[in-house]
């Protein structure tokens, strides 16, 4: 099979997942016992106003037709209007998304770098004190509630030693950098706005580290076990007998091959990272889509919740696709089927 055919097949396989997800959340959110209309219009609204609103939102039609209408809108990029912000859900999500992206990229850099580094050391020095230390560290990392870690860091670096800010993306006295990508760090760098750059850097340190920390543990565990397997392979022995140094063997022969399972698990990892991102955003009042979703849930804002779920599903599907393709590039031994 040609690589393009494979990619096409993978793209097509996303469709049933997206339909399933939208159906599930749509039907779920229409058996809600709460009363979103009163919430949206306020307790003073008259019966007529409520009825008009009911009709305007299409709530008087049968569920299956409402779903059909909704799906049609989604396909045209219309995720409906948020009951809470009164804005289009898609625009809201797009406005909140760069913050999430910035946080996730930061955390991924942190956890991939430290995770692979620690996992490799742990495998090479198997059963030595370093290995035990790394393993205990990753066990604790896996068992720790991420939001609690965030609060502990805030107590330390905001409460006791007031070095870092207590939340948000920018201090209130700093003007936003001119938006180009929406990522404050990148935008301020591109426009040469050093004040904003420094301020947003200070703000992103704690959330990134918090989010990254719990996943360093996961990556280092995976890297360790796959590295151990690779180190037993014949080609490693050959490389050693050729007289290559220990470092050379690891860098040129072992590391690349040991990363294959880590990349494969990247999809699961990313899903977990998304979960962690939501919790981290709430912890640090980081204005990303996770915080937006939490606020929408508190308000029973179905359109926003559904929009959020669909956007997450889409991001997730695309990332998995990219990971599958990366997998093919890293390991040419994989057969397409």
């Amino acid at each position: 099979m040609h690589i393009w055919q494979y990619i096409l097949k993978r793209i097509v396989s996303i469709i049933p997942v997206l339909i399933g997800v939208t159906m599930l959340t749509f039907f779920l959110s229409h058996i809600i016992p709460g009363d979103p209309i009163t919430l949206a219009l306020g307790p003073t609204a008259t019966k007529e106003q409520k009825a008009a609103f009911h009709k305007k939102m299409g709530m008087d039609k049968p569920l299956i037709i409402q779903y059909g209408i909704y799906l049609n809108q989604v396909l045209h990029g219309d995720l409906g209007v948020s009951l809470r912000t009164k804005g289009a859900v898609l625009e809201d999500l797009l406005a909140y998304f760069p913050a999430t992206l910035e946080l996730t990229i930061g955390a991924m850099i942190v956890c991939i770098f430290f995770g692979i580094y620690l996992g490799t050391i742990s495998a090479v020095k198997k059963d030595k004190p370093v290995d035990h230390a790394v393993r205990v560290f990753s066990l604790i990392g896996v068992s720790m509630p991420i939001f609690w870690l965030g609060f502990m860091l805030l107590i330390l670096f905001y409460g006791i030693f007031p070095i870092l800010p207590g939340g948000g993306r920018l201090s209130s006295f700093v003007a936003r950098p001119t938006p180009i990508t929406g990522l404050y760090l990148l935008d301020s760098l591109l426009t040469g706005n050093w004040v904003a750059f420094k301020d947003s850097l200070w703000h992103i340190i704690l959330p990134t580290f918090t989010l990254g920390f719990c996943y360093i543990a996961l990556i280092s565990r995976m890297t360790r076990s796959s590295m151990l397997e690779v180190l037993h392979q014949n080609y490693i022995r050959t490389a050693k007998t050729k007289g290559l140094s220990e470092k050379g063997v690891i860098r040129y022969h072992a590391l690349r091959n040991s990363l294959i399972p880590v990349v494969t698990a990247g999809g699961i990892l990313f899903a977990q990272l998304m979960s962690g991102t939501i919790l981290t955003e709430i912890t640090f009042s980081w204005p990303g889509i996770g915080l937006y979703a939490q606020q929408s849930i508190m308000y029973l804002d179905y359109n926003a919740i559904m929009g959020f779920v669909i956007v997450v599903a889409l991001i997730y599907a695309v990332v998995n696709l990219v990971i599958d393709i990366l997998y093919l590039i890293i390991d040419p031994r994989i057969k397409l089927h």
């Binding site: 049933p16 997942v17 399933g20 997800v21 599930l24 959340t25 779920l28 959110s29 058996i31 809600i32 899903a271 977990q272 998304m274 979960s275 939501i278 919790l279 979703a293 939490q294 849930i297 029973l300 919740i305 959020f308 779920v309 997450v312 599903a313 997730y316 599907a317 998995n320």
Partner: peptide, 17 residues
């Protein structure tokens, strides 16, 4: 479908409902 999705998002949506 359940597995290919960040489950906290799903759990959030269900609990909200």
């Amino acid at each position: 479908i359940f597995l290919s999705f960040p489950w906290i998002v799903m759990a959030m949506a269900i609990t909200a409902v």
